[in-house]
Nucleic acid binder design. Structure first.
Length: 152
DNA sequence: GCCAACGTTGGC
DNA sequence: GCCAACGTTGGC
């Protein structure tokens, strides 16, 4: 089992929205970055755990945890003319973009802020610290444990 | 709203 | 295949 961090803008979709979604589950659509796509398509697997990270908002940081409940499949929004995520170069035979399904697991007791993560020298590997814009990133077991412990 | 950092596009 | 121009992300 692997650990991941998924970014979302809570104004669009938050950990609370996930908690209150049908079956507490959502399709993680709209990833349009190749590096993030490759992680999702090739490495994110059912049963993996995901930190839900709130970006571009008042309280930036890790807000909760979800479980991956379906392996990668083509992102339907790439075929939807009406969607912001429509991609004219994608076909059913050769889809470009992929999604997984995630299911709510829990809120953290308190949000673990980006600032606190950056200041914690015990957290060493996570791409968040490097200022990248990656929306799907792997999290090492030690970084995962450290971030979880910071919520308590 | 600003702007730095990064990713993508397109001319050559 | 290089690289300048442009667009996007995302913290502040």
């Amino acid at each position: 089992m692997a650990y991941w961090l998924f970014k979302t803008e809570p104004d669009a979709f938050s950990i609370d929205d996930l908690k209150h979604a049908a079956n507490q589950t959502t399709i993680w659509e709209g990833v349009r970055n190749y590096q993030a796509r490759n992680f999702m398509r090739d490495e994110v697997k059912e049963g993996d755990l995901v930190m839900i990270y709130h970006s571009s908002c008042k309280q930036v940081g890790v807000a909760g945890i979800a479980t991956v409940t379906r392996d990668a499949y083509p992102d339907p929004s790439q075929f939807d003319l009406k969607s912001d995520y429509y991609d004219a170069k994608a076909t059913a035979e050769k889809p470009r973009w992929f999604v997984v399904d995630v299911t709510y697991k829990q809120h953290l007791n308190k949000l673990v802020s980006l600032k606190a993560i950056k200041e914690n020298n015990a957290i060493t590997e996570i791409a968040l610290k490097k200022g990248g814009r990656l929306s799907i990133m792997p999290v090492s077991q030690s970084d995962w444990s450290e971030i979880i412990s910071m919520a308590n």
